[in-house]
């Protein structure tokens, strides 16, 4: 026993080292990876509070660019209004508006903290469970897709952006409807990759990549990016497309959280409860 105590005393530095590394490792595992996310809402709340004042200051400095983006988005939306559409069908049919049910609702939020230079980037926004946010809701910005909500505290939410190694979403070509997984290869926050596009597709640089119905968290037709170059994958049957992201993560302030009103219904189909 005495010997044991002596041993304990001699190796107390090693034990302390192992204990501290254990704590750090637990911290890493518990927060970092998206699928395993056991979200620590306290640290988000704290880091959100600390960043808010900084973000307030920066939002003044970026006001002009932000305005430009919003104005551009307004213009895009205006194009979709009924007033700017020409009705070419006179008289013959009745127009029954009730077939259009609201499926998505949008909630605007502001980015209070974000990173874009790391391998596992994340964003914190200033809306949380009080505003009805839940995990797995999509987040889009004025320019295109941003990411998916990974965890919420009462006033803030943590978003895993598409420039994070652990998030894969589905993207489709606007022209040809071929689709594949979009996954960030790392390093450059302006670029990402879309894989598994069949070789016989006529896609070339400049083609636009959008979300489609398979993207699950997002409405169809939100821009992901545009093709920079294509190359054959190792299996020689599919293209790997290098995309330039629509969203500039270095300059992102205003985002919209997408609430899918039919999410529960879709989930019940995807994971049916066995009778």
């Amino acid at each position: 026993m005495r010997y044991f105590l002596l041993l304990l005393r001699q190796s107390r530095i090693l034990i302390l080292f192992l204990a501290l590394e254990g704590i750090a490792l637990y911290w890493v595992v518990s927060v970092q990876s998206y699928p395993r996310a056991k979200f620590s809402s306290k640290s988000t709340e704290l880091s959100g509070q600390l960043s808010e004042w900084q973000s307030n200051l920066e939002s003044y400095l970026n006001l002009r660019l932000e305005n430009e983006h919003l104005a551009q988005e307004n213009a895009n939306l205006r194009e979709q209004l009924n007033q700017s559409l020409l009705i070419q069908n006179y008289g013959a049919d009745t127009i029954n508006d009730s077939i259009l049910n609201q499926r998505y609702s949008f909630l605007s939020a502001e980015v209070v903290r974000s990173s874009h230079l790391k391998r596992d980037n994340f964003i914190i926004i200033d809306k949380g469970s009080r505003s009805g946010l839940k995990r797995n809701m999509g987040v889009i910005g004025p320019q295109g897709v941003v990411g998916v909500v990974a965890g919420v505290s009462s006033n803030f939410a943590r978003v895993i952006p598409i420039i994070n190694n652990s998030l894969t979403i589905s993207g489709a070509l606007a022209e040809e409807a071929y689709f594949g997984p979009v996954k960030w290869p790392g390093l450059n926050y302006r670029h990402t990759e879309l894989t598994d596009i069949p070789r016989y597709s006529k896609v070339d640089s400049g083609a636009v990549v959008l979300t489609d119905g398979r993207s699950r968290y997002f409405p169809a037709g939100v821009k992901i990016g545009s093709v920079l170059k294509r190359e054959l994958q190792a299996d020689q049957n599919f293209f790997k497309l290098k995309l330039e992201l629509a969203t500039d993560f270095a300059n992102l302030r205003q985002v919209y959280v997408v609430k899918d009103i039919f999410a529960a219904e879709l989930d019940s189909l995807q994971n049916p409860v066995q009778p």
Binding site: I13, L16, F17, L20, E21, I23, A24, L25, Y26, W27, V28, S30, V31, Q32, S40, S43, T44, L46, S47, L50, R113, S115, K118, F122, I124
Partner: peptide
Amino acid sequence: QLIMAFALGGFLDILEGSSGIHAG
């Protein structure tokens, strides 16, 4: 040394929101 190194890294982790990597 070890305790203060942990505090140093942990503080930066909280500021950066990087969850434990600097502390470790």
